Simulated assay, not measured.
Amino acid sequence: MKAWSYLLLLLFMIISCSGNSSSQNLTWYNNATISNITEDPDKPNELVRVSIGISAQVFYLSKKSADYKDLLEKATQSFKKSKTYNIGIENKTNIIKEIKEVK
């Protein structure tokens, strides 16, 4: 019986420490403002170029993403009204995956 208790405790610890892997795959730019939005000249049917901040780092919105319209709307608000957001960029792809309100 004691062995089962240790096994269940070990299993519980593994499950609780696994967390959400999708948020770990993102680099966050907090309190960021979008400085430009343009069609990507190389892949106009797939991507939109988004520049963030004064240094104009370029990232992309995928038109094939399920959240594309929502992300584009928030990006446009940031660009036109200088609204700040927390922006999550997928590592190794430079694709914007999340845009969250600053709290």
Rank of each mutant, 00 (worst) to 15 (best):
K2C: 12
W4A: 15
W4D: 15
Y6N: 11
L7I: 13
L7M: 12
L9R: 06
L10G: 12
F12N: 05
F12E: 04
M13S: 09
M13D: 07
I15C: 06
G19T: 01
G19H: 01
N20Y: 00
S23M: 11
Q24E: 07
L26A: 13
Y29C: 12
A32M: 09
A32F: 12
S35E: 04
I37L: 01
I37V: 01
P41D: 04
K43W: 00
K43N: 01
V50S: 05
S51F: 09
Q57A: 12
Q57V: 13
V58A: 07
F59T: 03
F59Y: 13
Y60E: 02
L61F: 00
S62N: 08
K63Y: 00
K63A: 00
K64Q: 06
S65G: 06
A66R: 03
A66K: 06
D67F: 02
K69S: 11
D70V: 07
D70S: 10
K74P: 02
Q77L: 07
Q77M: 13
S78A: 12
S82F: 14
S82C: 07
K83I: 14
T84D: 15
N86E: 14
I87R: 10
I87F: 10
G88C: 11
E90H: 05
E90W: 02
N91S: 09
K92L: 05
T93A: 06
T93H: 06
I95M: 02
K97D: 09
E98I: 08
I99Y: 13
E101N: 08
V102E: 14
